[in-house]
Design a protein around this nucleic acid. Structure first.
Length: 486
RNA sequence: GGCGCGUUCGUCUAGCUGGCUUAGGACGCCGCCCUCUCAAGGCGGAGAUCAUGGGUUCGAAUCCCGUACGCGCUACCA
């Protein structure tokens, strides 16, 4: 074991999208694998036919890959212990379930749902500590079993849990965990439709796929004793277990759709950078023990360890994600941002051909520190892409005086004398004009900003003028004078 | 109900082998500086009797026990 290559798996059921909690689980598996020169495996747990969702696997894989979580083995990256879709391994589960029956650790059950329901109700009425199957079919005679089997009536295969056993295992994150077998039900292993339940499939696959570390969500902790039992019954070596704390809603319930976005694709659509999402999710339940919060994937790989994963659930705090997104955005080079911005423009109503790279680069320099998302280049500085069609009312009320139009006109003529003006040229011309008007700089700069941008906030005034260029600036000032005067 | 897991500022967390903690950092919030505005940046502030009660100890957020609360599981779902 010690010298074996660590092998871990992310084993989602294909529900249609990658949940951010799933992303966190996948990420920790991935980081652990990369950190320890191991293998990261994707296995699809599609044994519930009622939950089949068309295209779910493709979507899952796409989200995983977008986040940079490349798996070494999986549905479309075959290794030699596949297939990696449980629905294609039915014969394997069947074979192993039968082995269990032969060894007496499992048995056929022909009970109808009606009998099971009645049993449960009866047990509840009696206020029994826990509702459990009564092992009725365990005591069927060989003949009865043969007859029922031959008749083709519905059957399942159940785990034969022996009472009064202590089931103990060591969890990497939680330490020693102990269960009493009296609290464990004779779990169905093979359903009446022939598909295995999670419990059987996951143990058989983890063993056959040589998984060394089972890293999964805390919701599995309670069923781990069933899995331990199965390993023992098969006489297989057990993997290490690490149960991750849950991701929570702001009200501390398990992170759910009702209280916001949970799908990775939602965050992608909202303009979050994959670097930020990964960084943020990594920190939800883990830290290196220092104050570092800004990480790239390679740094996470270098620092990650299961031993430093927390035990308690973590609230998914959007504010902090937003901050990290801004941080990651600002750390990118202007050229990297340029590519993203061009994509954004392409997906907007704007015509990309109107904005040469050189122009966009100026916009990026001016706005980079003022945005948290790429799409904010467009929403926070629309005037750098199109002339303003309206002007902020509050700013008009505050800075637009009766004499303002004349003063702006004066600026226009000052600017018109400039030859291909730089930022400094604009500034000098502005100061000269202001001096001649005998007014303070501040008195005119705000109306000018309003006239040129339609807004009261943004980059330095002269940066804006420089980006827009002389002709456009003059045109906009004249436009504003007319519009606001009217 | 039963079983299991958890509980440090609003949130993410440091603190893991008890003293260096008057409990540190980050997000958010507030204020100041910078400044043509908004950001970014710098500085500062408010904010946690470490869920609670009881032990052990010269000394506990750190070890032990109880209680409360929260969450998970309790399916022929994963």
């Amino acid at each position: 074991m010690i010298n074996e290559t660590p092998r871990v798996r992310f084993a989602p059921s294909p529900t249609g999208y990658l949940h951010v909690g799933g992303l966190r689980t996948a990420l920790y598996n991935f980081l652990f694998a990369r950190r320890n020169n191991g293998r990261f495996i994707l296995r699809i747990e599609d044994t519930d036919r009622k939950r089949f969702v068309e295209g779910a696997v493709e979507n899952l894989v796409a989200s995983l890959k977008w986040c940079g979580l490349e798996f070494d083995e999986g549905p479309d990256a075959a290794g030699d212990v596949g297939p990696y879709m449980q629905s294609r391994r039915l014969d394997i589960y069947d074979y192993h379930a039968k082995q269990l029956i032969e060894s007496g650790h499992a048995y056929y059950c022909f009970c109808t749902p009606e009998r099971l329901n009645a049993l449960r109700e009866e047990q509840q009425k009696q206020k029994l500590p826990q509702a459990k199957y009564d092992k009725h079919c365990l005591h069927l005679s060989k003949d009865e079993i043969e007859k029922s089997l031959a008749s083709g009536i519905d059957k399942v295969i159940r785990l034969n849990v022996e009472p009064n056993q202590k089931i103990i295992f060591e969890d990497i994150i939680r330490g020693r965990v102990e269960f009493d077998s009296n609290n464990i039900d004779d779990q169905v292993l093979i359903k009446s439709d022939g598909y295995p339940t999670y419990h059987l499939a996951n143990v058989v696959d983890d063993h056959l796929m040589k998984i060394t570390h089972v890293i999964r969500g805390e919701e599995w902790l309670s069923s781990t004793p069933k899995h331990i039992l199965l390993y023992d019954f098969f006489n297989w070596e057990k993997p290490e277990f690490a149960h991750l704390p849950l991701l929570l809603n702001p009200d501390r319930s398990k992170l759910s759709k009702r209280q916001g976005d949970v799908a990775v694709e939602d965050y992608r659509a909202k303009g979050y950078l994959k670097e930020a999402l990964v960084n943020f999710v990594a920190l939800l339940g883990w830290n290196a023990g220092d104050d570092k919060e800004f990480y790239y994937m390679n740094e996470l790989i270098e620092k990650f360890s299961l031993e430093r994963v927390n035990k308690s659930g973590a609230v998914f705090d959007l504010e902090k994600l937003n901050w990290l997104n801004a941080e990651h955005l600002r750390k990118k080079t202007d050229n990297e941002i340029l590519q993203l911005l061009k994509e954004e423009i392409n997906h907007s109503a704007l015509d990309i051909s109107q904005y040469p790279d050189e122009y966009l680069l100026k916009v990026i320099t001016a706005m980079k520190e003022r945005v948290s998302f790429i799409h904010e280049f467009l929403s926070k500085s629309p005037y750098l892409f199109e002339a303003p069609k309206e002007y902020e009312q509050a700013a008009i009320a505050k800075g637009w005086k009766p004499e303002t139009p004349e003063e702006l006109k004066k600026l226009c003529s000052a600017f018109s004398n400039l030859e291909n003006p730089s930022k400094e040229d604009f500034e000098q011309a502005f100061e000269k004009a202001v001096g001649e008007l005998n007014i303070s700089k501040g008195k005119l700069i705000h109306p000018l900003r309003l006239a040129v941008s339609g807004m009261s906030t943004g980059p330095g005034m002269f940066d804006i003028l420089f980006i827009l260029g002389k002709e456009e600036v003059i045109k906009r000032i004249n436009n504003a004078v007319e519009t606001i005067r009217a």
